[in-house]
């Protein structure tokens, strides 16, 4: 759901499919991020992530922006911190890990969510302890807290991050979320459990989700299956009632996983099968 393929998802909305001509340069964006205009700072933080400006100065400025106090919503949120946290995941610089871990304690839900997503993208094991701690908010004596649905923490983002980091020591904390009443959280738990155990039962949970009534949830399941590269889902992905663009991205995840197991120029039977399904969706 919220993950490294989110870019591809965002880019599917009409009008934003292609990036329109943008006049900002990396230098200007970095300068804007440190300037006085709150609107320009907010946009610059997004822009640096969107265009993957992997420049040390950009990373430094974004890390500083994670402690911003100037940009506040009426409810007390931190818009600039949210954008900076999201951008840092995309830039792939592990110097951001400690600052993002600090953000997991931020009072703003969306800052915590963005930080968890980005820590998942950076795949740094040093975040596991802090992610576990946040996840424990949803648990009481090893089970989900009785007050449900509990959406006090960005559980889906936390679970996905632990899966991406391959935090096998977190399995006991992740597993109870398979019963969570919020479908996205439940899928995130299935996705993480698959990554942590490679057991097909969790992949199958996501395959069943492809048949749900809600298009948003089918899209989420497509993204999850692509992220875990679960080959037995290939046909079901191709047959899901959703946009071909999203099915192609999901199948691309399966194909990449096949290639990672069987490097090119070899092609596994699974890779050939996935590509023949992709060809039909073009």
């Amino acid at each position: 759901m919220q993950n490294s393929s989110q870019d591809s998802f965002e880019s599917l909305s009409p009008g934003s499919e292609e990036t329109a001509g943008d006049t900002l340069t990396p230098e200007q964006a970095i300068a804007n991020l440190q300037g006085a205009d709150l609107g320009l700072r907010f946009y610059a933080a997004w822009w640096l992530g969107r265009f993957r400006v992997r420049d040390a100065a950009a990373v430094d400025a974004l890390i500083i922006a994670l402690e911003d106090e100037a940009d506040r919503t009426p409810e007390g949120g931190y818009p600039l911190r949210r954008n900076a946290a999201r951008a840092l995941g995309k830039l792939g610089d592990r110097r951001a890990v400690n600052a993002l871990i600090q953000c997991l304690e931020c009072s703003d839900f969306y800052v915590r969510e963005a930080a968890a997503q980005s820590l998942g993208m950076l795949e740094d094991a040093s975040a596991i302890g802090a992610l576990n701690k946040l996840l424990l908010n949803g648990l009481l004596l090893g089970e989900l807290v009785p007050q449900q649905p509990d959406s006090s923490q960005p559980y889906d983002a936390i679970l996905e991050a632990l899966g991406s980091i391959r935090a096998t020591e977190s399995i006991a904390l992740v597993k109870p979320f398979l019963e969570h009443p919020i479908p996205r959280v439940k899928y995130a738990a299935a996705r993480a459990m698959y990554q942590l155990t490679q057991e097909a039962v969790y992949g199958e949970t996501l395959v069943r989700a492809l048949e749900g009534d809600d298009l948003q949830l089918r899209r989420a399941a497509l993204a999850d299956l692509g992220a875990i590269g679960y080959l037995p889902a290939a046909e079901a992905i191709a047959n899901t009632l959703a946009e071909n663009s999203l099915k192609l991205i999901s199948l691309k995840g399966l194909l990449e996983y096949q290639v990672s197991q069987n490097p090119l120029p070899e092609l596994s039977t699974g890779a050939l099968k996935v590509m023949s399904l992709m060809d039909e969706l073009l």
């Binding site: 691309k252 990449e256 096949q258 290639v259 090119l264 120029p265 092609l267 890779a271 050939l272 590509m275």
Partner: peptide, 13 residues
């Protein structure tokens, strides 16, 4: 893109 390179191999074969 890995996916494109994989499809190229399939085409060549």
């Amino acid at each position: 893109s890995v996916a494109v390179r994989a499809r190229v191999q399939m085409a060549l074969s």
